[in-house]
């Protein structure tokens, strides 16, 4: 019981951010189609979020020392 709860917590930790990006992308793709001009602005932010995030990881990785940029959950 305890193990399965820990496992589901770990599952959420692994998939929470990807699911957030996926939901944002789907929302943006539909928003531009359904909500006219306002929907377009929503789409630029939400569909563009993965691009901005990847760019941020890349820039951060180049500007910080390797040790500073998160490795494993236990810091190994």
């Amino acid at each position: 019981m305890h193990g399965s709860r820990g496992r589901s917590r770990l599952w959420i930790r692994v998939f929470a951010a990807p699911m957030l990006f996926a939901c944002a992308t789907i929302t943006g793709l539909l928003a531009a189609l359904l909500w006219g001009a306002i929907g377009q602005y929503v789409a630029w932010v939400t569909v563009g979020a993965p691009v901005v995030f990847i760019a941020w990881v890349w820039v951060r990785r180049r500007t910080q020392k390797p040790e500073q940029f998160g490795q494993t959950l236990h810091g190994k």
Binding site: L10, V14, P18, R61, Q71, L73
Partner: peptide, 8 residues
């Protein structure tokens, strides 16, 4: 699963 999200 043993890595932080976005760990490189």
């Amino acid at each position: 699963r043993r890595l932080r999200f976005a760990a490189i």
